[in-house]
């Protein structure tokens, strides 16, 4: 009898493997964590979108306040759809800093004029050098940076209206 049961072992192994692989099928590879999680926000030295003369660096994000850093571009349709949610977050008192990603200054400023400007300031990154350091592979992307400038949460893609309350606000509260 024992030997008989032993014969079922390969089948059991196969079933376990099937369940495991089947779960893998429904994983969304775009929901993977950022490689920068729990690491310092990278160093940078860039002009602002609003004022070409003004340079900003990492100290912008170590002010003791939790900040959402949103990577956006005028060329990105999802960013336009996301703006109402960002405006909502700003209205609820969340500090937002934008990274104008691979845009020209005119287009970036035009975007803010048309869709609203929830950002305290926008870092102008026309070549995507800061975005590369952040491992950005598409816009929009949002990073939550804690009071000490450490990246604590990463959202890839568009923040849907429901996600403001369900995901973003709880994370902001958590790190405050």
């Amino acid at each position: 009898m024992k030997r008989r049961l032993l014969l079922l072992l390969p089948l059991a192994g196969f079933l376990v493997l099937s369940v495991f692989l089947y779960q893998g099928l429904s994983l969304n590879p775009f929901h993977r964590d950022s490689a920068l999680m729990a690491r310092d926000f990278p160093e940078f030295d860039l002009a602002t979108l609003e004022d070409a003369e003004r340079r900003v660096d990492r100290s912008l994000l170590t002010t003791g306040e939790v900040t959402l850093v949103n990577v956006w571009g005028e060329w990105c349709p999802e960013c336009k759809r996301e703006m109402p949610q960002l405006l909502d977050l700003a209205e609820r008192g969340v500090r937002l800093v934008g990274i104008s990603y691979k845009d020209t200054r005119e287009k970036g400023l035009g975007f803010l004029e048309e869709f609203g400007d929830p950002f305290e300031i926008n870092i102008f990154d026309p070549d995507g050098e800061l975005a590369f350091e952040l491992g950005v592979y598409g816009a929009p992307e949002t990073f939550l940076v804690d009071a000490d400038g450490v990246i604590r949460y990463h959202h890839t893609g568009y923040i849907a209206p429901g996600e403001v309350r369900e995901k973003i606000l709880p994370e902001v509260e958590k790190w405050r």
């Binding site: 993977r32 964590d33 950022s34 490689a35 920068l36 350091e133 491992g135 592979y137």
Partner: peptide
């Protein structure tokens, strides 16, 4: 690359 974009 891994430091920026992950093991992916």
């Amino acid at each position: 690359m891994v430091q920026r974009f992950g093991d992916y």
